[in-house]
């Protein structure tokens, strides 16, 4: 059975970081399992934790009154769930729900945040890495907004369709 430190050191978010930095981050972590349907985060709850998804499928979603939840993004192995621990007011913005049994490393955002405040080198390294993942998510969200598969006429002919 791998330890939290092994999972953390092998995760793409932390790979290549200094051993003492990885050790510290791992010291803020715990292995946590979730059953299908469990919530990892709930909108507006205090964002004390974030998760490294080791195995399974989860979805980020939002709710609407008297309506089923709206899925926004699917996540799976090696993905990260939760940013709100990093940014005031430190409350989750969306729900994260397990779509299958999940294995995760739950990291204590308060612990890491406090350490980053006193260790700028760790803070900067971590922010660079998190920013890269955030940029990927932003690109994905923009791509979704482009609505490239829309049935409306496109500016160019595409396979199986034409403006003529």
């Amino acid at each position: 059975m791998k330890t939290v430190a092994q999972f953390v050191s092998e995760h793409s978010l932390f790979k290549g970081m200094k051993p003492d930095q990885v050790d510290f981050i791992a010291s803020c972590g715990q292995l946590r399992r979730f059953a299908e349907g469990d919530y990892l985060t709930r909108e507006n709850d205090p964002a004390d934790f974030f998760y490294l998804l080791l195995e399974g499928h989860a979805v980020i979603e939002t709710h609407q009154h008297n309506q089923p939840p709206v899925p926004l993004l699917s996540l799976t192995d090696n993905d990260i769930i939760g940013w709100s621990w990093l940014i005031p007011p430190y409350r989750y913005q969306f729900d994260a729900r397990a779509l299958s049994r999940l294995r995760t490393v739950r990291l204590d955002g308060r612990c890491i945040r406090a350490k980053c405040d006193t260790d700028p080198a760790l803070g900067f390294e971590l922010l660079k890495r998190l920013a890269a993942v955030l940029v990927q998510r932003i690109h994905g969200a923009r791509f979704q907004l482009l609505d490239v598969y829309s049935a409306d006429p496109a500016p160019l002919c595409r396979p199986g369709e034409s403006l003529r």
């Binding site: 979805v59 899925p71 926004l72 993004l73 699917s74 799976t76 192995d77 090696n78 993905d79 990927q136 994905g140 791509f143 979704q144 482009l146 490239v148 598969y149 496109a154 160019l156 595409r158 396979p159």
Partner: peptide, 30 residues
């Protein structure tokens, strides 16, 4: 199924770059 963009699935897919051919068809942006 997956909600998000197709590139996200590709990023997490296991591929053997030395022995794989990819065929692509869709909107040019995609």
């Amino acid at each position: 199924g997956h909600v998000g963009v197709i590139t996200q699935l590709l990023a997490s897919a296991e591929m053997d770059p030395d022995n794989t051919l990819a065929v692509i068809c869709g909107p040019e942006i995609m």
